Computed example of a mutant assay.
Amino acid sequence: MEVIACVQETDGEYKIFPMGRGEAHRRNVKHLVVRILGFNREGMLLVQKRSLIKKSHPGMYTDSASGHVLYEENFSFETILKSAERELWEEMGVKGVLKPYLELKLDEEDLELNYVFLALIKGELRFNDEVIAEESGFKTVEQLKLMLEKEKFVAFAKALWEKFLNDYPTAEAVKRLAEKMETASPTDIQK
């Protein structure tokens, strides 16, 4: 059984506690999720189309990778970072240089508190069965903008991509971001 990091909020303070994934979903308990917006040195953006076998949002486009944060006894930012690395590897078969982008954004629909990471992708993509491989992969900035207008996206992921494209509206801006992330020290990346 997968035990995920659930969240109880009291007066702006968050308490992390463990609960089985299925039980958390059945009981509508807020839980932590990581989402990754990936790109490469060429300024291309990594978009995933969810498999038709997924329980939630089947066949819809989404971020590059996402998933639950697994609970650990000594919970820390490292726990969240490890979950982001794991999801990127499991779903897309790649590693990346990760940098926090947005912290604790609530997805009201799914009761998820999201930590959003940017990822400079390294390596060849190898999709798992949770991904429609033929329709997932790297897209140009222009292609993604058009997809956001015409294709069905998970609503929360669509809002994330729109914010990203507002912050980095061109391939050149994405290339500069990739260069900055590639040359940053590990302590800079975690800020």
Rank of each mutant, 00 (worst) to 15 (best):
L125P: 05
E109A: 13
E73D: 11
G43L: 04
K175W: 03
K55C: 11
L144W: 10
E42F: 05
V47F: 05
D188G: 12
K54M: 05
R21Y: 07
R26M: 00
A171M: 06
Y14S: 11
L46F: 03
L37Q: 13
V33Q: 13
Q190D: 04
A184N: 07
V131K: 14
V29H: 03
G67Q: 05
H68W: 11
M60F: 07
D129I: 08
K139Q: 04
L81A: 06
V47Q: 01
H68A: 09
K99P: 00
V33Y: 13
F39C: 03
D11T: 06
L160W: 05
K139P: 11
V116M: 13
L160P: 10
K82Y: 08
P58Q: 08
L177Y: 10
A5E: 14
R86G: 09
E151P: 07
S56F: 12
T187K: 15
R50W: 10
F153H: 07
N28E: 00
E72M: 09
R21L: 13
Y168Q: 00
T79S: 14
K163S: 04
P169M: 08
N40Y: 04
F75C: 09
A119S: 01
L88T: 06
D11C: 10
R21N: 04
K145R: 06
S83E: 01
V97L: 04
S83K: 02
F156A: 02
K82W: 08
A155H: 13
M147W: 05
I80V: 09
I16N: 08
G96V: 00
A157L: 08
R27L: 07
K105S: 15
E112P: 10
K95Y: 11
F77T: 12
S56E: 08
P58E: 03
K145P: 05
D188W: 14
W161A: 12
Y14I: 03
Y71V: 07
M44R: 00
L160I: 04
Y115D: 10
V34C: 14
L144P: 03
N28H: 09
D167G: 03
L81R: 14
K15H: 10
F153P: 05
E149A: 13
M44N: 03
K180W: 08
P58Y: 11
A155N: 07
S83Q: 14
M1N: 15
V174W: 06
I80N: 04
M60R: 05
L113K: 04
M44Q: 12
A84W: 01
